[in-house]
């Protein structure tokens, strides 16, 4: 099975799980807690850092070889899992109010960081250090790292 098919299959199964899980007896067990919040953000950081390293190491091959989707997949799946919890709870958000507050703080801090990253990328393209589509995975993984690290940092700090 090639990478494209594998990713497609996982995503289709995840969407099916999103619709079916809330209707099963496992629904009662689906709850957001502190450990899951840590796990979501740690996975976000790991995927982000791994993605940045592979982007800089392999260059544009990260896109052509579909490593981009593969590395991003765990983060997508944990966010989908929290969407399932949100569906089961039937509320606007599965997180508690402080987690929501900390995620807002992280979003506010990752905005200027990601803008800074874009300026650096622009300069690198201008100097022909980077070429082609590499800006896209670098930007996505940088933002994911900044946001996840920010959420975790504020949750622990405050």
């Amino acid at each position: 099975m090639n990478t494209k098919m594998f990713i497609f299959l996982i995503l289709v199964l995840s969407v099916i799980a999103y619709w079916l899980l809330p209707k099963t007896r496992f629904a009662k067990r689906l709850k957001m807690n502190e450990k899951l919040f840590y796990a979501i953000n740690v996975i976000g950081i790991l995927c982000g850092v791994a993605g940045l390293a592979v982007s800089l190491g392999l260059g544009e091959m990260i896109m052509t070889g579909h490593y981009f989707e593969l590395i991003l997949l765990p983060a997508v799946l944990v966010y989908l899992y929290s969407a399932v919890i949100m569906k089961v709870q039937g509320e606007g958000t599965p997180y508690d109010e402080k987690q929501n507050y900390n995620m807002t703080q992280a979003a506010a801090i990752s905005l200027p960081f990601s803008m800074g990253a874009m300026f650096v990328l622009y300069a690198m393209y201008k100097e022909a250090v980077f070429e082609g589509l590499l800006w896209f995975p670098v930007y996505v993984f940088f933002t994911l790292t900044a946001y996840s690290a920010g959420s975790l940092f504020y949750f622990r700090k405050n």
Binding site: N33, E34, D96, E97, K98, Q99, Y101, R156, K157, N158
Partner: peptide, 22 residues
């Protein structure tokens, strides 16, 4: 009260101001 332990810790330390509801 339906929050995480970390939230209670932060409120006790006065590092986080709870919502009116909480």
């Amino acid at each position: 009260v339906g929050v995480t332990r970390q939230t209670i810790i932060s409120i006790e330390k006065s590092k986080y101001v709870p919502s009116a509801l909480l």
